[in-house]
Write a protein that binds this DNA or RNA. Structure first.
Length: 920
RNA sequence: GCCCGAAUGGCGGAAUUGGUAGACGCGCUGGACUCAAAAUCCAGUGCCCCUUAAAGGCGUGCCGGUUCGAGCCCGGCUUUGGGCACCA
């Protein structure tokens, strides 16, 4: 019987389903282990060979942990709400639900062929009302909470109201929007509407006017991580800044905890660094400047990280969107300022980025007083200052900040250096080093020292205070789209009011027209989109809403009383291993952590960080092939000869190419225009050029996992994807190498069968055979734990080669070997496990014990004497004589350093010479 | 511009973390089996010098350093991938 992967794989995939092999439940008798994949968005294109990379890696780890005796939770589901399905609906009129369902079915059938050990009974879909009930529920909880900075956690809004009734706004230290202070008496006197407006400034899910990324092409707002270089990530449409009233999540309240929590996570340094940059902690000082517009004087607060440079301030700058602009624009400057504001407003985000470093601005007409020098400096307005960060106003120190420097140069403002000996004639001196000068009491201090001294001074004199700012903004949570979770909010007399929890899920209404009309979201078209006779919110939640807590839902997916039961959460706790791409670094992975921390604050979950260990799989790129057409002809020239002609490079379908050799007939048949193609060959063959590019249809380099399963089998696919290289690394797919692992499986099979002959015997294994096995066990255990699957597979190939050479067909060796291969190639393992006489699944087996004795090389310990005294013990190959060792040691140049009475050293020997002597 | 990471044969990649560089696989060359092909198996394969072999020399992006010894550590570059981008 030859290795017939087709029937084997079909047989065992059916067997696993009918025996519910991978169902799991809470089991107090075994330790839990939770392995999670980032669930896919089911796109219409289906899976290509790059998608399952992470899934295979996590599946191997799950199966390995199971063999190690863990109760492994390994679920899968679909991130099914999203823009592409809706865009498709607008184009075709097909309901997103039906295309999504179809896409999911396609994904499922592709995934099923690869032999994953998912517990499919736990599947979740974010667009399923039974699932998004809990997304809406979490939103309502956030709506009903505020962030208490004193306790550093979220608390119910009722407790805030109680505090207001007792002591007014001064009674709490909260993360909140702008609120005018009020007393307890004032609070009690406020109308319902006033109270509601104030509470809205405190809620964790709140509605507020904010500058948003508006994408006209998609007709919706986008989060910062959904915009790249001024274009929408989905669709690539231009994005502009616009002020709009939007639902937002107060993620910024958690900035400190999100930052500090990173230290406890087993994630890659690069990913943690990305999150740190995104959170962007910066410790500085808020300083109050008196500003005067000719008639009135105000206190204006600015934020700076370099108070030490305050003696070098020569002007101030406001963001164009700052509230100060209106107050500080003098009548004489009004026309000029208005013109500038109009100019800034009509620029799109993309233009702003393209023109970065071009300096623009306008003088407001007002002056500020430097609180330390008493000097008057002009107040300017410029787009290089951002409204959303700090206070939207800065003090400008052109000598020591490159942006201020460029501005000062452009508008001829003075540049005053305050560090000894620095040259600011060409550029600013931004480095934090040198001795202070021109700076009053700071003179002579080192810069680092001066920063602290200046902070202390400002605080002592009551001119300002230390302040930590974060770059992380609140997440904009509204989307003017249809295919997302509806907000469980209705407007009762204009007041945003939560839908009763008992009425969740608030189901997405049927609509027939998916286009937005007149800037209104599609839900505005829905009939009877009301609740208790009042209008419901018409925007929907963004993509990250449904993916923020799905890992919790998997723990208890059918619970209709809660997101996750206390018992299930207490057992499964958190995700031990999370595998997915880096592209979610500043989106999903921040939002999930925030969401989880919020639920933790309220006591719904036991862990405050959701993902303990995270592995980022690299991308699998495509390997494209090219043919070279001679310009103006239908003649194609082979790679080696193309430089003799003027040619155009054309992508050719990789299915027409084998080993970079073009199948000429298939090429002619590929497209009508190539029917009469002629070729200039080298050595009778047409050699194609190649390049590594993104795997995509337009480059004709997509490899479908189904076709690999058809031709080689799922086990070969799994092995080959892992053999390609380290999981974290991006690497090109190249199908031609797949024969190597396929050969390995056939060879493995032949250890058990020769033709129709079953070879396995119960004879005792020889030491050489045991050594081959145990070398492999040791290697596999160490490598799997560190995700070096590619070297594990190499070790397999070596072991199988050795056992083949030894003619080994002993059960004592082959049975553990089957267990060892089962995480990688589960189908062949099951088949052989059954053939070995087992009537249970190999998944129930135990990982074999590693016995170190079998891996020790042929060595023994020699005492080595020198000048008649024993000085060394060395581990050496047995076949090296003592005399030879002593001779070699004596001759070794390192000897004098280590000579001592009791020195014990290890001598590293290669045939014929000593390589090293090290102290033991 | 700033912050991470990477660089090893024709290719994908190994190297016990400072100790025989190039494991394993692909590709290529030669051979066996075969009428032939496929499949399978065996041998060779870093580069240079050389008819061949032996022997030798050179080799982990570049320049320098530490060390008995460096792909690995230190200093300075180059190229390349990724992230951020007026965050005061």
């Amino acid at each position: 019987m030859e290795y017939d992967f087709r029937s084997i794989e079909r047989k065992w995939q059916e067997w696993w389903i009918s025996h519910k092999t991978y169902r799991v439940g809470e089991d107090a008798s075994r330790p839990k282990y939770y392995v999670l994949d980032m669930f896919p968005y089911p796109s219409g294109a289906g899976l290509h060979v790059g998608h399952p990379l992470g899934y295979i890696a996590s599946d191997i780890f799950s199966r390995y942990k199971r063999l190690k005796g863990f109760n492994v939770l390994h679920p899968m589901g679909y991130d099914a709400f999203g823009l592409p399905a809706e865009q498709y609906a607008i184009q075709t009129g097909r309901h997103p639900e039906s295309t999504t369902t179809e896409n999911i079915a396609r994904y499922r059938s592709q995934l099923d062929r690869i032999g994953f050990s998912y517990d499919w009974s736990r599947e979740v879909r974010t667009c399923d009302p039974a699932y998004y009930k809990w997304t809406q529920w979490a939103f309502l909880k956030m709506f009903g909470c505020w962030y208490d900075r004193a306790a550093d956690k979220a608390r119910p809004i009722e407790e805030l109201v109680a505090a207001f009734e007792k002591g007014g706004s001064a009674a709490v230290d909260a993360s909140c929007g702008e609120v005018n202070p009020f007393t307890a008496e004032q609070w009690k006197a406020f109308s319902e509407k006033e109270k509601s407006d104030i509470l809205m400034q405190y809620r964790i899910a709140y509605q507020g006017e904010t500058s948003v990324n508006w994408c006209e092409g998609l007709g919706t707002v986008l989060a910062n991580d959904e915009v790249k270089e001024g274009l929408s990530v989905r669709g690539g449409f231009p994005v502009e800044q616009k002020k709009m009233k939007q639902w937002q999540l107060r993620v910024s309240a958690y900035a400190g905890r999100l930052l500090e929590g990173l230290d406890r996570l087993d994630w890659s340094d690069s990913l943690k660094e990305m999150q740190r940059n995104w959170i962007g902690k910066s410790e500085g000082t808020e300083v109050v400047f008196k500003v005067n517009n000719g008639s009135e004087t105000y206190d204006m607060t600015i934020f700076t990280t370099r108070v030490d440079t305050i003696f070098g301030v020569t002007f101030m700058v406001l963001a164009p969107e700052s509230d100060w602009v209106e107050k500080l624009t003098t009548p004489a400057q009004k026309a000029e300022v208005d013109e500038y504001l109009a100019y800034v407003k009509k620029k799109t985000e993309r233009e702003r980025i393209a023109e970065t470093r071009t300096v623009t601005g306008v003088f407001s007409g007002s002056y500020a007083v430097n609180p330390l020098t008493g000097e008057n400096v002009p107040v300017w307005i410029s787009e290089y200052v951002l409204a959303g960060y700090g206070t939207g106003a800065i003090m400008a120190v052109p000598a020591h900040d490159s942006r201020d420097y460029a501005f000062a140069r452009k508008f001829n403002l003075p540049i005053v250096p305050i560090i000894e000996g620095c040259d600011v004639s060409e550029q600013s001196f931004d480095a934090k080093e040198g001795k202070m000068c021109n700076s009053g009491f700071l003179n002579g201090m080192d810069v680092k020292q001066a920063i602290e001294a200046a902070k202390d001074y400002v605080e002592e004199k009551g001119l300002g205070r230390r302040k930590t700012n974060f770059r992380l903004r609140d997440a904009i949570f509204s989307r003017q789209r249809y295919w997302g979770e509806p907000f469980p909010i209705y407007y009762k007399d204009g007041i945003a009011t939560p839908v009763d929890e008992a009425d969740l899920p608030l189901q997405l209404p049927e609509i027939s027209d998916f286009k937005s009309k007149g800037g209104e979201p599609p839900l505005a078209n829905a009939k009877d989109w009301t609740y208790k006779g009042y209008p419901l919110e018409t925007s929907t939640m963004p993509g990250f809403a449904g993916s923020s807590a799905y890992y919790l839902r998997y723990m208890d997916p059918h619970n209709d009383q809660g997101l996750v039961s206390r018992e299930a959460n207490a057992y499964w706790q958190d995700v031990d291993l999370y595998i997915g791409g880096t592209e979610h670094a500043t989106g999903h992975l921040i939002y999930s952590r925030f969401w989880n921390k919020f639920l933790f604050d309220l006591g719904y979950v036991v862990k405050d960080e959701p993902f303990r260990k995270l592995v980022n799989q690299g991308m699998i790129q495509g390997r494209s092939n090219f043919v070279y057409r001679i310009v103006g002809t239908n003649k194609f020239v082979s790679l080696g000869l193309k430089d003799q002609y003027e040619t155009t490079e054309i992508h050719v379908d990789i299915n027409l190419v084998y080993n970079d050799r073009l199948d000429l007939e298939a090429f002619k048949a590929w497209r009508p225009e190539f029917q009469d193609a002629e070729f200039v060959l080298e050595n009778g063959e047409y050699i194609c050029g190649w390049a590594v590019e993104k795997m995509s249809k337009s480059m004709y380099n997509v490899v479908n996992p189904d076709s690999i399963c058809d031709n080689y089998g799922a086990d070969t696919l799994r092995l080959y994807e892992m053999f390609l290289g380290p999981i974290e690394q991006s690497k090109p797919w190249d199908t031609k190498g797949i024969d190597g692992v396929n050969r390995f499986l056939k060879k493995f099979w032949r250890l058990f069968y020769n033709k129709d002959q079953w070879l396995v015997t119960d004879e005792k294994a020889t030491p050489a055979e045991l050594k081959a096995l145990h070398k492999l066990i040791g290697k596999e255990e160490a490598d799997i734990e560190s995700f070096s699957y590619n070297t594990t597979i190499s070790a397999f190939m070596i072991a199988v080669g050795e056992l083949t050479d030894l003619g080994c067909n002993k059960r004592e060796i082959l049975e553990p070997l089957v267990v060892l291969i089962s995480p990688f190639a589960p189908h062949i393992a099951e088949e052989l496990w059954e053939a070995l006489g087992h009537n249970t699944t190999v998944a129930d087996a135990r990982f074999p014990e590693y016995v170190a004795a079998y891996t020790v090389e042929n060595t023994c310990t020699y005492p080595v004497s020198f000048n008649g005294k024993t000085r060394f013990t060395v581990d050496l190959p047995k076949d090296m004589s003592r005399e030879a060792v002593e001779e070699a040691v004596r001759a070794h140049e390192m000897l004098p350093k280590y000579v001592g009475e009791q020195t014990i050293v290890k001598v590293i020997v290669v045939p014929g010479r000593i390589v090293n002597i090290v102290l033991k």
